[in-house]
Design a binder for these strands. Structure first.
Lengths: 162, 162
DNA sequence: ACGAATTGTTCATTGACATAACAGTTCAGG
DNA sequence: CCTGAACTGTTATGTCAATGAACAATTCGT
């Protein structure tokens, strides 16, 4: 029974102490994803940050930069750079909002939607390659548990329907 | 039926598109861990990087900086800073290696071991709090799947027919 | 009408790395 | 033994994403 260890939980690895922490495993796993996804996205002129923003705006047309910054958990000043970059390549637009001259309504251009669909598919493929050692069910469980862990105890029991 | 959604997979969230990617869920989850753990560690004068190094040296006495850099996947020049920091507060030592004057043998001082045990426990508690929405079994599965995803196709199956 | 709050923006700064070059040391082969 | 390649630790410098603090323009509350 001591014969073939699952290799996934190698106690002889020099960083075995750290892998006992979920956070370390998260970091290590994310680093791997980040490298592969960044490389893939850079081929189409995107970074992880701009990819994420593009996706959020694509599915939330008319959103403001402030709101986008909340969603992506990046400060407003950081969003400017991201939006600038996406606007410069013509995939995203800042249009005036009728009622309020302080903010812009963000929207994705037709070309932007095309790029988004392409990038989305590419990242999906990249992730599939990365997680080839997991079967479909495991990947789904992983994603689900991560989402749960990411949201945490969302404190607000749900009594704030805006 | 539309009443109480599991909240864990909230399709109305503005970044729902992104949560469909495992990588995004990883990032989000890790960010949360990073914030909490960093805060906790800073109380005892540690950062995540120094904490990790301390743990690896504690369980791998006599290790060299080069080897440590491989394990933590940080370049040698980056390790210098980490080791400097740990040595300055007296939890880690660089001692001469008999046979080879190029490298140092790293080791953790008694006080260092005490700090490590304390930090280890603190991080464990912090993680437990963070993942309170997961039961013990889920946390274990999450950790296991992450480790698997982090290692990926470890390539070294033995056959590398070039 | 006026002070408080909001939005987007700029600029300086930070932190956590990487890169490149370097000195000291070891080692393999002639 | 000698010499050049390879290795270890180190320093200096650059990079990249993100933050914080300020600011102007605008809107809101009372």
């Amino acid at each position: 029974m001591t014969a073939t260890a699952p290799r996934t939980e190698d106690p002889t690895a020099a960083d075995a102490v750290l892998y006992r922490f979920t956070g370390y495993a998260m970091k290590r796993a994310y680093m791997r994803v980040q490298d592969a996804v960044s490389a893939r996205l850079s081929e189409m002129g995107l970074r992880i940050g701009t990819f994420s923003a593009l996706g959020v705006v694509a599915t939330n047309p008319g959103i403001s930069q402030s709101r986008l910054s909340e969603i992506l958990q990046i400060k407003r000043s950081g969003i400017v750079v991201v939006v600038d970059e996406l606007e410069r390549v013509g995939v995203l637009e800042r249009s005036a909002v009728p009622g309020d001259r302080r903010m812009y309504a963000l929207s994705v251009t037709p070309g932007g939607h095309r790029l988004w669909r392409k990038a989305e598919a590419a990242v999906r493929v990249t992730e599939a390659e990365l997680f080839a050692t997991l079967d479909a069910g495991e990947t789904e469980i992983l994603r689900h548990l991560l989402a749960k862990a990411a949201r945490g105890a969302t404190a607000d029991g749900g009594g704030d329907p805006e």
